[in-house]
């Protein structure tokens, strides 16, 4: 029994390893070929022949300093947009979700909630074209540039991420006993004080989930920034920068793969640090 079980586990481990090799193979190729020259990559993309750290530095120098890519600038832009959007979504989402779930028996709150939930089926494609023209016209009208600007795109992410954020948060807040708030209210705590001092700290686990889901989406998103910021605009996020960089270096794999490495590295490092939280956050978001 134990022997056959051990044998079965061995076979399963081997199968698992083979699948893992297949899954990780492209990432390995990116990593390894960043250490090689174009000619060496084309001659033999799988082996380590010609790989050296000096070549990696050379590739990095070419890519980071490239005027189409501007890695540090794109990285900073992506980081700023993602962080700002995440903080605002957590804060405004929490505030809105609290109001909705504390009034869920009233008709207006139920209607707002229904609109949020129903809007989750709206595909981005159906709003993207009018979105751009609305932002262009509204920006011109009020005298703030909403396209090609970080505040404009953060505003858009708050709008697009709002529905899912509220949906998940409302589900959680409904589970917080109302007595807690009544006690605070009797002790003379104002409604806004109750939210910030009592409810918000309790939301920490679910805000982590929401932040992971929104963060993965915003960091990797291509279509919205490419439309709002433009492919050749001044402000570029990392995916847009990779896209325009690759467009200008067709088949220059040493540069393309090094750029790809730089683009995926932040996420992989983050995953290594917070693997458990990211994996459970992604699952919880899907189940709710």
């Amino acid at each position: 029994m134990t022997k056959s079980k051990r044998f079965k586990n061995l076979i399963l481990s081997v199968i698992g390893l083979l699948v893992a090799i297949y899954v990780l193979f492209p990432i390995y190729l990116v990593f390894m070929n960043s250490f090689k020259k174009q000619t060496d990559i084309v001659a033999d993309p799988i082996s380590l022949a010609g790989a050296s750290s000096a070549q990696l530095l050379e590739n990095l120098r070419q890519v980071v300093g490239n005027s189409n890519f501007r890695f540090w600038y794109a990285f900073g832009t992506s980081a700023a947009i993602t962080l700002l959007s995440l903080v605002l979504l957590a804060l405004f989402g929490g505030m809105a979700a609290w109001v909705i779930s504390r009034n869920h028996k009233k008709r207006w709150a139920a209607v707002i909630y229904m609109i949020f939930v129903a809007s989750m089926i709206i595909p981005f494609q159906v709003v993207m074209l009018p979105l751009i023209s609305t932002f262009r016209d509204a920006g011109k009208f009020i005298g703030i540039s909403l396209l090609q600007s970080i505040p404009g795109i953060v505003f858009a992410y708050c709008g697009f991420g709002g529905a899912m954020t509220v949906f998940i948060l409302v589900g959680f807040i409904k589970g917080i006993p109302y007595e807690l708030e009544e006690a605070a209210s009797i002790d003379g705590c104002s409604p806004e004080g109750t939210f910030f001092k009592i409810i918000l700290p309790l939301l920490k686990p679910v805000i982590t989930t929401v932040t992971i889901l929104n963060g993965m989406w915003i960091w990797n998103d291509y279509l919205l920034p490419s439309l709002m910021l433009g492919q050749n605009g001044k402000v570029k996020t990392l995916p847009v920068a990779v896209q325009s960089f690759v467009g200008s270096y067709v088949k220059q794999w040493d540069r393309i793969l090094t750029a790809a490495l730089l683009a995926i590295l932040p996420m992989i490092i983050l995953f290594a640090l917070a693997q458990k939280q990211i994996m459970s956050g992604m699952v919880e978001g899907a189940i709710k």
Partner: peptide, 20 residues
């Protein structure tokens, strides 16, 4: 509390949907 998110949602999703 409701205003910021609803405002962003209306401008980026609802109005463009109707216009679209």
């Amino acid at each position: 509390f409701l205003f910021p998110l609803l405002f962003a949602f209306a401008i980026t999703v609802l109005i463009p949907l109707v216009l679209g």
